[in-house]
């Protein structure tokens, strides 16, 4: 964990860029253009953050959203880990049919979120189930895509020793593609965050997405900026944890 906190050159550059943007923003909208209609004053954003905490119950909404998201993420990872052999075997057997399923990838995720709103009354478990399906589908899709990166030397060696009927062979295939697969986790994490916010925004019952909806109804521009900062920070921290976990999952790379 300590090594994670050590800043790389790339992280230093990002930090410098963010600091510069914040500095320019403060200078521009606090002192030069304090009455802009498009961007709120930094002090207004700070006040909105306080209001989000006390009046919009930010912590409760954050707990609602993030618990559903990260529990679904972990369950989906466990499902994928334990079903990898069976899934890879099935994917290899029905490769062309699986490829044909990619057509559903062109459907916007927004459609699925709206569909769930039609079918169910939202509660935490429905949200969890929706997220679980989203994560598992994305993981399987990326697992399938990663199959093209399998190292033939591992494949041939395992096949030669075990044959393709042995579960150990599929474990080798899984381990061989795992380094490519874990690279997609951060991308999926961000994607599902966006889908989830859209989902909660449409349902407008609970969660950070519904908070965006409420803030929009109140035309609270400072609140939109404040909440966006909070959500961005959450995604950033989530990504850091995922990258840390990736290194643990693929500790031979």
């Amino acid at each position: 964990m300590i090594s994670m906190l050590k800043l790389t050159d790339s992280s230093k550059n990002k930090l410098k860029l963010v600091s510069a943007v914040v500095f320019i923003y403060i200078l521009l909208f606090e002192f030069i253009l304090p009455d802009s209609e498009f961007f709120p004053r930094p002090t207004l954003i700070l006040e909105s953050l306080k209001a989000l905490w006390s009046e919009y119950f930010l912590f409760t909404e954050f707990a609602y959203t993030s618990s559903a998201l990260y529990i679904a993420f972990l369950i989906a990872l466990v499902i994928m880990h334990f079903s990898s052999g069976f899934i890879i075997k099935t994917m290899l057997k029905f490769k062309e049919s699986v490829e044909a399923l990619s057509v559903f990838g062109y459907f916007p995720s927004f459609f699925y979120a709206v569909l769930i709103a039609f079918w169910f009354e939202l509660n935490w478990f429905i949200e969890l189930a929706f997220l679980l399906i989203a994560f598992v589908t994305l993981f399987w899709k990326d697992l399938f895509n990663s199959l093209s990166t399998i190292k033939t030397e591992y494949n041939d060696a395992a096949l030669s020793i075990k044959g393709d009927r042995d579960s150990d062979f599929y474990d080798v295939v899984y381990k061989s593609i795992l380094p490519e697969f874990v690279k997609t986790l951060s991308k999926n994490h961000l994607y599902v965050w966006i889908v989830l916010l859209t989902f909660e925004f449409i349902h407008d019952v609970s969660g950070l997405g519904s908070l965006f909806n409420k803030i929009l109804n109140f035309h609270d521009l400072g609140g939109v900026f404040g909440l966006t900062i909070v959500v961005s920070l959450l995604i950033f921290i989530g990504n850091m944890l995922i990258q840390f976990a990736n290194k643990r999952m693929v500790d031979w790379e």
Binding site: K151, T152, E153, Y154, D156, A157, S160, I161
Partner: peptide
Amino acid sequence: VLIPSEPS
């Protein structure tokens, strides 16, 4: 048993 050309 096959031992491939790349480290396996």
